[in-house]
């Protein structure tokens, strides 16, 4: 039972990680609280669903979600965030919330307000491994999350692009002085981070078998709590925080029966982190 809940928690945590790591990446580069990241996630879910309905290939659907998510993220960066860089962060934050609202509503106007689902029976198989039940949809989510997170690990830790990202996130002026093109890097960071948010949308849509316009509401704000716990611009902090909060949520509902709504748990945990470990987060990530 406990192990089963932990596996379920890891599945959810993996999806959180795909969203939160992109968010941490963007925060590191632009110092913007990118609420519209969850808009990318909604768009990714719809594109993935329709690609799947047409091609019947989940891999193609995943690639389409990532490609369109990427384009959408880059568009938001170019048309909304770049003109606002010189203003205070609250301006970008409100613009970001505006983009998020407009995206969700645009999706609702185009695709309708109702829940859309994948064709029945595609991921219905179940695997029994030593008393634990893993559904096929869960397996799909786990495999894709592991692949995607490995890709993120490889790109951020093993390539020059990853190194340049770290440099810009620590000190943009200094990075520019050693010939890192920060404009180009912002573009690439958004393209890269948004692809995984799009993929996360498709994975959540297939896992819960429902795609609907408001599906981004909860991830939009929960992912913010996750990156605070992880240390804002710290990609791997965001990863561990996602896994931890995914498992914590599942356990608190499935095992401990905590009466609080599951979606506020991440924020309660965040408050504890801010209260008891402020020096770990504060000193490192205060705006310069």
């Amino acid at each position: 039972m406990l192990l089963q809940q932990i596996i379920n928690g890891l599945t959810i945590g993996g999806i959180y990680a795909l969203i939160a790591m992109g968010l941490a990446l963007v925060y590191g580069i632009l110092r913007i609280i990118h609420v519209a990241h969850a808009g990318v996630y909604v768009v990714g879910a719809y594109i993935g669903l329709y690609t799947f309905l047409i091609t019947h290939s989940f891999v193609l659907a995943a690639l389409a979600s990532m490609a369109v998510g990427s384009l959408f993220g880059v568009a938001v960066q170019k048309f909304v965030y770049l003109p606002l860089l010189k203003h205070s962060p609250i301006i970008s934050l409100i613009a970001s919330i505006g983009v998020f609202i407009a995206t969700q509503e645009g999706v609702r106007l185009i695709f309708g307000p109702y829940i859309k689902s994948f064709p029945s029976g595609i991921f219905d198989a179940q695997y029994h491994i030593g008393g634990i039940i893993i559904t096929q949809s869960q397996l799909v989510v786990l495999v894709f999350s592991v692949l995607a997170i490995s890709a993120i690990w490889f790109v951020t830790e093993k390539t020059k692009f990853g190194l340049a990202l770290k440099a810009v996130s620590q000190d943009m002026d200094m990075a520019e002085s050693v010939a890192i093109d920060s404009k180009k890097l912002m573009f690439l960071a958004f393209a890269f981070g948004s692809a995984f948010a799009g993929l996360a949308g498709l994975l959540v849509g297939s896992y819960f078998n429902s795609v609907y316009p408001a599906m981004g509401d909860v991830p939009a704000y929960k992912s913010l709590a996750i990156i605070v716990v992880g240390g804002m611009s710290n990609i791997w902090g965001a990863f561990w925080a996602s896994i931890f909060i995914g498992v914590l949520e599942t356990l608190s509902i499935g095992v401990f029966n905590i009466p609080l709504p599951r979606d506020s748990l991440a924020f309660i945990f965040m408050v504890f982190v801010l209260m008891f470990k402020p020096e770990g987060i504060m000193g490192l990530f205060k705006r310069n």
Partner: peptide
């Protein structure tokens, strides 16, 4: 009180959290 210790981005997220927690408490007790 959090505004005394955290910088502006943290404060934005913390206050979002306060909203969700307060709403959650009123909704579930």
């Amino acid at each position: 009180l959090p505004s005394l210790r955290v910088s502006e981005d943290f404060l934005a997220i913390t206050t979002i959290g306060i909203n969700f927690i307060v709403q959650g408490i009123f909704n579930s007790f």
